[in-house]
Amino acid sequence: MSPIEGLCEAHPGAGNAPKAEGVAQEPLISIIDDDDSLRTALVGLVRSLGYRASAFGSATEFLAAGEPSASDCIVTDIHMPGLSGIELKQRLTQEGCAVPVIMITARMEPGLEERAVASGAACFLRKPFEVSALVACVEKALKRQP
């Protein structure tokens, strides 16, 4: 089976998968960014919010790890080697995976936000972003979780 097949199949403890009864687990936020320092910072922020965090250097790495089924929310950079953040979201949608995706970018190119939103991004933020805005996006995304 290809690593990206069955992206949103049930997974014990997964965010949008049925939770194991009686087990209270904090939501898992997956961080995907090719910039080491920002990725580490985002992990730190998520943990300070009281959530669990997993970190990946690229979307391909994220998919290969089978994380979509476990994640409650994805925070991803848009421009990365290999799959971009928008392409990742499109891939998840195709696979019926409704995990919310927050997209961040340092690029200023015109039309990028529109393309991100059109792909189904829960939030679009430009670096350097207001951290409170990112926190709001994450919490909003988690509240939408079933």
Binding site: L38, A41, G44, S48, H79, V131, V135
Partner: peptide, 17 residues
């Protein structure tokens, strides 16, 4: 801008955390 924004975003995030 991208090069500079990356550490700036990290700084802001780390500070907030």
């Amino acid at each position: 801008a991208h090069e500079v924004n990356q550490p700036l975003a990290a700084i802001a995030t780390n500070a907030s955390a």
